[in-house]
Design a protein around this nucleic acid. Sequence first.
DNA 1: AAAACGATCAACCGCGCACAG
DNA 2: CCTGTGCGCGGTTGATCGTTT
Length: 244
Amino acid sequence: MGRQPCCDKAGLKRGPWTIEEDHKLMNFILNNGIHCWRTVPKLAGLLRCGKSCRLRWINYLRPDVKRGAFTESEEDQIIQLHSRLGNRWSKIASHFPGRTDNEIKNHWNTKIKKKLKLLGLDPVTHKPIEKTDGNSSNKPDDDEERGMIPRKDDEKPEESRLDLDETNDIFNNYQMLCESFDLDSWLNQGGNTCSSSYSMEESNKSSMGETNSTIQQESVKHWVDSVDSFLSWDKLYSSDLNFP
DNA sequence: AAAACGATCAACCGCGCACAG
DNA sequence: CCTGTGCGCGGTTGATCGTTT
């Protein structure tokens, strides 16, 4: 049976969000909360599907979303978690307050994978890539990507892919390799393209055991700071943005 | 100066799960 | 149970920007 589309696509806007749309969505959610994503666009006066609104909110407009470059420790943690969890980005993201699964996934695919390959580690298995005589057993890049194909082992409990000892071994190997290679200078040759008002120090705080409320306040402050650069705040319809 | 190429990331798509009726 | 619905997730796409030739 054909699955119904998530929304009636006819007449719905797609593509990049405009500032006005952001304003509408933000105002609506801040004033009304989220009860049903399907109804959000209609009630907020947006010609978007609920899914699109949800994504925009989660990945961009959410007050606690942390933007900016990943710190080295964050990257290390991502690698460690990925070796245990695989491509379960949402689970990985849950270890990084304010980071979104999309952001982590993008960072993995564009930066960390290359980093690991450069170190001679297989980004899928996290084990050293075996050099073979070019026969079919040594998978080319395309096949390597196959590792990203959704596994059917989702029913396996978390951390079942590799046991912790093995994970730590792999991670230690990775760290040793990093120490012997000036990766950062290599990676930063092109400069860091992520510009953000969010400092590295701040980004570490949230995972260092600060109280939730402090983190929230910080997050909101940073959100205001960062969003301010692209949103004209005095154009917001209402000023009663009462964050908890 | 401009074309070609590569990197990045926001957004979309489709599948699967959970849950209600 | 079965079916429909909504949501969340992971993979992929494509626009945009920066770099190289």
